[in-house]
């Protein structure tokens, strides 16, 4: 019998391989590409409008993205049941292995997958946002860290919540976690109502850094031509951006559901 760490290492690499070869990244990239595409169309249109109209368009875009991502989430939910039928993990649990090692290995594999996703997405953002809209600045590494750390946290929490063994509970927990993870959007919005010299410096930085995907469109139209100042920030942190943040949340929910679907195969296996 091999030790826990060896078990974890072997399973983590195998899970990572699944993430690369399987449909996991395919789903993620499809959703992200769709958002980029939609963002491009709307922002090009919004470029020609005044600020107020831009924000209205941003809101419209956000709701469109929300509908698309909501549909993706529903499809992912439908797919979960089929994933759960797999006997692969039942076989692994039947092995004379310490089951903590199997859980640990699986979580490690998820983190590796999230890390890869974060790196690829940071590069994609650099290319798409940077070249297309000439907005490089300091956002790229921050996008990466945001995606990676949030992804790690969310996949870990999803793993724990998937112990509930209920699709409905997991779905709503994932949704709640996604929204909580983006509570900073709300905090920024509220904070922007009170002026202070610190917020003047911090808020623009955070606005660019945190809602990685949702902010693309704001940057592209409303922010692009404006300096990253307190005034510009308070103008841009609008309900439109908040709606975009929700779209972003839903993307996270979608990613979470895919991750949960894999985790649950372990859990269900343990249940039998």
């Amino acid at each position: 019998m091999i030790d826990i760490l060896s078990t974890a290492r072997i399973i983590a690499l195998s899970t990572f391989k699944e993430g690369l070869r399987g449909r996991l990244l395919f789903f993620i990239f499809s959703a992200v590409l769709f958002i980029f595409l939609l963002g491009n169309i709307f922002s090009n249109f919004a470029d020609k409008q005044n600020l107020e109209l831009r924000l209205i368009l941003e809101t419209g875009m956000a709701f469109s993205a929300l509908v698309v991502l909501g549909t993706a989430v529903l499809i992912a939910c439908q797919g979960l049941g089929k994933h759960d039928d797999s006997g692969s993990y039942r076989i692994m649990f039947a092995m004379p292995l310490n089951r903590d090692g199997i859980y640990l290995g699986y979580l490690g594999g998820l983190w590796l997958t999230v890390l890869t996703y974060s790196i690829v997405m940071a590069v994609a953002l650099m290319i798409v946002v940077g070249y297309r809209f000439d907005v490089f600045r300091y956002t790229i590494p921050l996008h990466f860290f945001t995606l990676f750390i949030e992804g790690m946290v969310l996949s870990t929490v999803a793993f724990l919540f998937s112990l509930s063994r209920s699709n409905v509970v997991s779905f709503f927990m994932a949704l709640a976690i996604g929204i909580m993870a983006h509570a900073e959007g709300v905090i920024i919005h509220l904070a922007s109502q009170s002026s202070s010299i610190i917020m003047e410096r911090v808020v623009p930085f955070l606005v660019n850094a945190l809602p990685a995907l949702g902010s693309i469109n704001v940057k592209s139209s409303a922010v692009r031509d404006l300096p990253l100042t307190w005034e510009a920030t308070t103008n841009c942190v609008t309900w439109g951006q908040f709606a975009l943040g929700i779209g972003h949340n839903l993307l996270y929910v979608f990613i979470l559901l895919v991750l949960i679907s894999i985790v649950r195969r372990f859990i269900e296996a343990d249940k039998g």
Binding site: M1, S14, K17, E18, G87, S88, I91, A94, L97
Partner: peptide, 21 residues
Amino acid sequence: SVKSRTHIGYLADEPSPFAYL
């Protein structure tokens, strides 16, 4: 127990080797 499983090999009703391997 892990020890009891050292004696056992298991073939599931649906042979499900990892599809991506």
